[in-house]
Write a protein that binds this DNA or RNA. Structure first.
Lengths: 245, 245
DNA sequence: ACCTGAACACCGTTCAAGT
DNA sequence: ACCTGAACACCGTTCAAGT
């Protein structure tokens, strides 16, 4: 990489080069290891040189998000709202899975860039084009939340509770003891964790993230469809979601 | 606070005192300003003294999460699964809203502490007690995701896209220009943003977070109920969620 | 044995001195 | 006018020297 820095030193820095280098570096070493200093080093440049192209680290991260957004497919033409939304979310998810840092950076961003606003705008447009009221669209976008970007908070890191890696290289009797301990203290977690861990061991990866993601997405989409059919509105402040008259 | 440090210096440090001080400090100054050094200073102690009670900063954050979990109400006795889940999620949400750092810290934690596992276990127990299959419970927990803790990714920081504060103290003609710019570039965002901003200006806070949270929560709970009634199962890998035979 | 100051290996960013 | 080294004000954590 010193070699690479050597080779690329001559071609002048630009905002684009800084951003792509940041994306590549974060992909390779993880977001927590992405520092202005490290990035500069990778580019064969003194740290301060970066500040000519990005105002500060925040702006660097914003730029990385923009790069991500550009990888998401535009809305499908000639599809009904449900398919269009579904396809687009899954496209966003594929982009997200290509970049391990994306989840965390997306979560941390508070000022939206034009590219992000553009994505949101066209996302909202899919519901409006499907005949959704502005009111319902508003609530539906909130309900979707981060699923718009193709991720959900993963609060089971793996089904057994984040002990997979450490457990793997332990003597079998120790593993058995941990299992009994789990079974006694967290019986419900254990049941659920073992339910979908088909061929894997209990402490294996457990479940199919993509399946879980689509399960929840489709559940929401079906809910949205139901409300839309019922001409749901928040205005008269109904207590529930009643059937049509 | 130097005075307070003076007063409390004499009573010996303990893990509990360290953790409550961390929670209070994070509540007051924000999570990004919570450092081991700053916390030590607040306690009238040299930074290294903390390392007698927490192994490192990670463990400090884990301890703070445990403190949060202890504020969540236990499941309601004598309530059906839906009410029990609903009440508990809203209790978690109240705890979360008391501690501005909680969202971010919860998201960052990857190793679950016993207190967190205990919460999850009893949360899962509410579905199982309601007669849900282990299979459906598993998927339903994933669908709930961070909503189990009472939050969703807030990806509209405010409806208009995070420009509220800066815009407030701008000359009116500049605000009008921004508005026209928004209307032209992001027409859909603008429609949705203005739909629920009843008395507020367009750039005001816009919408009621609690309403949005409950809207999405109830939509999911109703979806769960439907699947449960239909004896939904992931096993035969059905393409959709068909009606009962 | 316990406690802690100094030090290490980092950060993001400012600023003044160099070309 | 541009570029950049040194410096500033921080981090979390190690470690050896002090009591």
């Amino acid at each position: 990489m010193t070699q690479q820095a050597e080779r690329t030193r001559r071609i002048p820095l630009s905002r684009g080069r800084v951003l792509t280098a940041a994306v590549v570096l974060a992909d390779e070493v993880g977001i927590e290891a992405l520092s202005m200093r490290r990035l500069a080093q990778e580019l064969g440049v003194v740290p301060m040189a970066l500040y000519k192209h990005v105002a500060n680290k925040e702006e660097l991260l914003d730029g990385m998000v923009d790069a991500l957004v550009s990888e998401i497919d535009p809305p499908a033409r000639d599809a009904d709202w449900k398919d269009a939304v579904r396809l687009r979310v899954l496209s966003a998810r594929r982009a997200l899975l290509r970049h391990p840092w994306a989840r965390q950076v997306l979560e941390s961003r508070t000022n939206k860039t034009p590219a992000v606003l553009g994505y949101m705008d066209s996302f909202i447009g899919m519901f409006l084009a499907g005949g959704f009221s502005v009111d319902l669209t508003h609530h539906v976008m909130h309900a979707l939340g981060s699923r718009m970007w193709g991720f959900t908070q993963e609060l089971f890191p793996d089904s057994a509770g984040g002990t997979a890696e450490e457990t793997a290289d332990l003597p079998p009797e120790a593993q058995a003891a941990m299992f009994r301990e789990m079974a006694e203290r967290y019986p419900n977690i254990l049941k659920v964790a073992t339910s979908s861990a088909h061929e894997d061991s209990v402490v294996g990866q457990g479940c199919d993230d993509q399946f879980e993601f689509e399960f929840a997405l489709d559940l929401l989409l079906e809910g949205f469809e139901r409300l839309h059919r019922q001409h749901w509105t928040s205005m008269p402040k109904k207590t529930s979601t009643p059937a049509e008259p």
